[in-house]
C-alpha cells in the first residue's frame, strides 16, 4: 500500500467514525445514520476498547496478567457517578476516575509484583471478587443490588450531551485522546523499555532497566485506563449495578485482548469489536452463540495465538521483515520457565 493511499484511507476512516452514525439526508447524502441502539453499541465498543487498551498495556507489553479490569471499570463508574451526584463537572469526574484507579493499581501492584510471575494475576483475582462484594453489599454508597439510576450525561458549553449521537462524539473524542496518549507512551523511551521487557525481561534487567518499576507503572496506567472507561460507561448506560463488574467480566477483558491480538496496537479495538459486536451478528444462533464463540476462541488460540490481528497479517502479508508490533506477545515463554529447587521431602 502506497503512503498516500494509506493517508487517504486513514482520513476516510476518521471521517467515517465522526459522521458515520449521523443522519446525513439533510446534506443531500442518502444515509440516515445509525439508530439510537446502533449508536449505543458503537459507543459501547469505544468504551470497551479503552479498557481493553489498558489490559493490552499490562498483558501485551509488560507481560503480566490482570484479572481485575472490570473491577477497575466499576471503581471508575462509581467514582464518576458519586462525584457527579456531589455536583462535580464531568471533566473532573473523568480525571478523578482514572487517577483513583491508577493509585489503587500502584497500591495493589506494589506488593504483588514483589513476588514471582502469576502472583499479580492471583492478587487481582482476589481484588476483583472483593470489589464486587463491596459494590453489592455497601448499599448506602453504591445502591447495592439495585444499583444507581438516573446517571446524567454531561453538559458541554451549555449543550446537553443526552442525545446518543452527541454522547458518542464525546466518547469518540476522549477515546482519540487516550489512544493518542497510549501511542505516545509506547513510542517514548519509556515504551521502548516496555518492548525490551516483553522480549526478554532478564536481558532488560541486565541492561539496567528497572523491571519491577516499569511493570508496576504499566499495571497502574493500564488500570487507570479501566477507570477512564468506567467514567464513560456510567453516563452511557445511565444506570449502574454490580453485575458488569464481576470476575467473569474481567476474564472477558483478558480474553478479548488476547483474542484481538495482545501486544498489537489495534488488537484491543479488534478484541472489543469481537466482544461487543459479535453477539449482534451471531444473534441467529441464540443459545448456541456462546458455544460458537468459545470454539472460535479455542481454535484461534491453537492456530494463531497472536490473535485476530496476527491472523489477518498472516493472511494478507507474505513473509516480510518482522516489525516490533507484528511479533505479538512472547507471553510467558521468555520469563515463564521455572524450575523447582531442592527436592521434595
Amino acid at each position: 500500500m502506497s503512503r498516500t493511499l494509506k493517508i487517504a484511507l486513514g482520513v476516510l476512516l476518521i471521517a467515517i467514525f465522526i459522521v458515520g452514525p449521523a443522519d446525513l439526508t439533510g446534506f443531500g447524502i442518502p444515509w440516515t445514520g445509525l439508530k439510537r441502539y446502533g449508536t449505543y453499541i458503537l459507543t459501547l465498543w469505544l468504551v470497551t476498547a479503552v479498557a481493553a487498551m489498558g489490559v493490552n498495556l499490562i498483558v501485551g507489553y509488560a507481560g503480566q496478567e490482570t484479572l481485575a479490569q472490570a473491577a477497575f471499570l466499576g471503581i471508575g463508574a462509581f467514582t464518576t457517578t458519586l462525584l457527579q451526584k456531589a455536583g462535580l463537572p464531568f471533566g473532573l469526574c473523568f480525571i478523578a476516575s482514572g487517577l483513583v484507579c491508577f493509585l489503587v493499581g500502584i497500591i495493589l501492584g506494589f506488593p504483588a509484583l514483589r513476588v514471582q510471575k502469576h502472583y499479580l494475576a492471583f492478587v487481582t483475582l482476589a481484588f476483583s471478587v472483593f470489589v464486587w462484594l463491596v459494590i453489592r453489599n455497601e448499599e448506602w454508597l453504591t445502591g447495592g443490588v439495585n444499583g444507581i439510576q438516573g446517571i446524567k450525561r454531561p453538559v458541554l458549553f451549555g449543550i446537553s450531551l443526552r442525545p446518543a449521537l452527541y454522547y458518542y462524539w464525546l466518547v469518540l473524542t476522549l477515546t482519540a485522546v487516550l489512544t493518542g496518549m497510549m501511542w505516545w507512551l509506547l513510542r517514548s523511551p519509556w515504551g521502548r523499555a516496555f518492548t525490551a521487557l516483553r522480549e526478554n525481561s532478564v536481558r532488560a534487567e541486565s541492561l539496567g532497566i528497572d523491571v519491577r518499576g516499569y511493570t508496576l507503572m504499566a499495571f497502574a496506567i493500564g488500570s487507570g485506563y479501566g477507570g477512564f472507561a468506567g467514567a464513560m460507561y456510567a453516563p452511557l448506560v445511565e444506570f449502574i449495578d454490580p453485575s458488569p463488574f464481576a470476575l467473569g467480566a474481567s476474564l472477558q477483558y483478558l480474553l478479548m485482548v488476547v483474542a484481538g491480538g495482545a501486544g498489537s496496537f489495534v488488537g484491543p479495538f479488534v478484541g472489543a469489536a469481537v466482544s461487543v459486536l459479535l453477539p449482534e451478528w451471531l444473534r441467529f444462533a441464540e443459545g448456541f452463540y456462546l458455544i460458537i464463540f468459545a470454539l472460535l476462541v479455542m481454535l484461534l488460540m491453537a492456530f494463531c495465538p497472536t490473535g485476530i490481528v496476527g491472523l489477518f497479517e498472516r493472511l494478507t502479508t507474505k513473509a516480510r521483515r518482522p516489525h516490533a508490533d507484528d511479533k505479538g506477545p512472547t507471553l510467558g515463554t521468555g520469563t515463564g520457565s521455572t524450575t523447582v529447587a531442592g527436592s521434595k521431602s
Binding site: E65, L255, G287, M301, F303, P305, T330, L331, G332
Partner: peptide, 23 residues
Amino acid sequence: PLMKQGTLPLVISTIGLAILLRE
C-alpha cells in the same frame, strides 16, 4: 497444541473451554 505458545494463550483457551462445557 498450545504448550509451545506459552502460558497466556493456554489460559485463554481454558477460559474458552469453560464457556464451551458450561453452555
